[in-house]
Design a protein around this nucleic acid. Structure first.
Length: 513
RNA sequence: GGCGGAGUAGCUCAGCGGUAGAGCAGCGGAAUCAUAAUCCGUGGGUCGGGGGUUCGAAUCCCUCCUCCGCUACCA
């Protein structure tokens, strides 16, 4: 829909108190793949992630650790930066809510909303548990006590409110004119029906703790969660400098990728805040689903939390990246199963993809002196396979624009299957004797197809795909989508190739021997 | 309760008005270039139940059953 050159994709900022788990890895992975794809497609990309470091829980955790909050968050936010390295993510920026640039942005946004008349001072009232240091909703109470069993008391504190109620009609009109604003479509319905029910004003400041951004002009209040956290998407673009290069280039964001649990904040509150401050809402919010573990809901108490580091160590990085995006239609919930992981690694990566590369390169090694073969006149079969390779990008592009990452993968793997069938149908090992020139043409066609496949899988499996391109001696400058297609940069006959070696190892059960 | 979604081969799902499909699993076969990797053939499932519209319905309408999501201040 947006054919502009720039592309801005974001993850949520992760709550720094958490230990990174599969959910964080999954969200960031999706963004990484989108970002890499768009870069290879020639777009100017800005990929943002970061950490959310304010709030009462952080303040408390820091105290318990005997540290100042800032020093504490410096330490724990590192865990998220480490995940970026381990999973080979490629963000362009990492925003922390404790950074000066963010504080300035939040306070400015606040001030703009005040100037617009969208903020007023009122009282926040609710059931408060001193023991838990938290408010509970009426509906959460169990027999007049907190869900934790702690006693609660009715407490009122002064609080600033955002006039969310005034935005109902504007939001509904916005949704109506932007039917693609929320994906998947079923989530869009939820958002609209939520807003239709009517909106209450939002409490957006607290006086019960200090670890946060002070309200401009009233330092007794700290700006509460969502105004603080959501603003990261623009503070990283240099807001309030709306005339700056970054902001002008990248706002509004092309897509905020989030987990389904925080959809409302992104699809209702965030556009309202932006409208209140005179800014454009993002173009799209995409909510993905949750993982279960071998059919079980994941929870700390069950002790079945999935550690992304463990996945990478056990199955391999690209294997993990592939599985997470291939196993489940992006947007739906998924079940992580060792058995299906192994099946995909061994059948789809090792057998279908890896072995295609290996068998073709081994034949080129033996029949063509290890050089890119010289294609003669192309036969209709060759042209059909190449056409499919050339058209693959366009098909993937359409899916990537809609965050249908699984379908994009489907396209390339369809091409891999086609290539394997072509190998069997052409039988170059037989042609080698009957018609060597024809064998060379077939092998060139295959090598060229593999070049397309590997380039197209770069966003998903950057390391393995890179190794395949190494085996084809594709220069770094040609590892881009511009090099694909009929007008691209086909492999040059005669180019010497390195000896091939398997790229996707099979997974062998540890207890198998 | 309200709004929305889903119930199709053993499993995961696509199809959304014209005589039931894909992938995986299973069974049979071919090939031997390759990480024993590939390829071909093989799917009689009341398309949740019932009713209706239509020349014709997984596909539209009604109804019932079952399951799931959302229904506000929790990162």
């Amino acid at each position: 829909m947006s054919q502009r050159d720039a592309f801005y994709v974001t993850t949520p900022i992760y709550y720094v108190n958490d230990v990174p788990h599969i959910g964080h890895a999954y969200t960031t992975l999706a963004c990484d793949v989108i970002a890499r794809f768009m870069r290879l497609d020639g777009r100017r990309v800005h990929f943002l992630t970061g950490t959310d470091e304010h709030g009462q829980k952080v303040e408390k955790a820091a105290r318990e650790a005997g540290m100042e909050p800032k020093a504490f968050t410096d330490q724990v936010s590192e865990r998220f930066r480490e995940l970026l390295r381990v999973m080979d993510f490629s963000p362009d920026d990492f925003i922390r809510t404790t950074e000066e640039r963010h504080v300035r942005a939040v306070q400015t946004l606040w001030t703009r909303m005040v100037e617009g008349g969208w903020i007023y001072l009122g009282k926040y009232a609710g059931w408060y548990s001193v023991r838990d240091e938290a408010y509970y909703a009426e509906s959460e109470l169990v027999d007049g006590r907190a869900p934790t069993g702690a006693p609660v008391e009715w407490v009122e504190e002064p609080s600033y409110f955002f006039r969310l109620s005034a935005f109902q009609e504007r939001l509904l009109r916005f949704y109506e004119s932007h039917p693609d604003f929320v994906g998947p479509a079923t989530r869009f319905n939820e958002v609209v029906s939520f807003v239709r029910q009517g909106l209450q004003d939002l409490s957006i400041s607290r006086t019960t703790f200090r670890w946060g951004i002070p309200v401009p002009g009233d330092p007794a209040h700290v700006i509460y969660v969502w105004v603080d956290a959501l603003t990261n998407y623009i503070s990283a673009l240099g807001y309030p400098d709306v005339d700056g290069e970054l902001f002008r280039t990248f706002w509004p964001a092309d897509v905020h990728v989030i987990g389904k649990d925080i959809l409302r904040f992104h699809a209702v509150y965030w556009p309202a805040f932006l409208m209140a401050a005179g800014l454009e809402p993002p173009r799209r919010v995409f909510a993905h689903g949750w993982w279960t573990n071998e059919g079980q809901k994941i929870s700390k108490s069950l002790g079945n939390v999935i550690d992304p580091h463990a996945l990478v160590a056990r199955y391999g990085l690209d294997q993990t990246r592939y599985y997470l995006l291939r196993e489940v239609p992006f947007g739906q919930d998924g079940d992580f199963r060792h058995e299906s992981m192994v099946r995909r690694i061994n059948h789809e990566l090792a057998n279908d993809y890896g072995n295609l590369v290996q068998r073709v390169l081994a034949m080129i090694r033996r029949y063509c002196e290890g050089r890119v073969p010289d294609p003669g006149e192309l036969a209709p079969d060759d042209e059909a396979l190449l056409a499919r390779a050339h058209n693959c990008l366009a098909a993937m592009r359409a899916h990537m624009e809609a965050q249908a990452l699984h379908r994009a993968l489907d396209e390339v793997f369809g091409l891999i299957g086609e290539a394997n069938r072509y190998v069997d149908a052409m039988a170059p090992w037989a042609l080698r004797r009957s018609d060597p020139a024809r064998a060379a043409t077939v092998l060139w066609t295959l090598a060229e197809t593999i070049r397309h496949v590997a380039t197209l899988t770069l966003p998903f499996m950057p390391q393995s795909s890179g190794r395949i391109l190494d085996l084809l001696a594709v220069p770094a400058a040609a590892r881009t989508f511009r090099a694909l297609g009929a007008e691209g940069q086909p492999l040059r006959p005669g180019t010497p190739l390195p000896p091939p070696s398997p790229v996707f190892p099979r997974y062998v059960e540890e207890d198998a021997g």
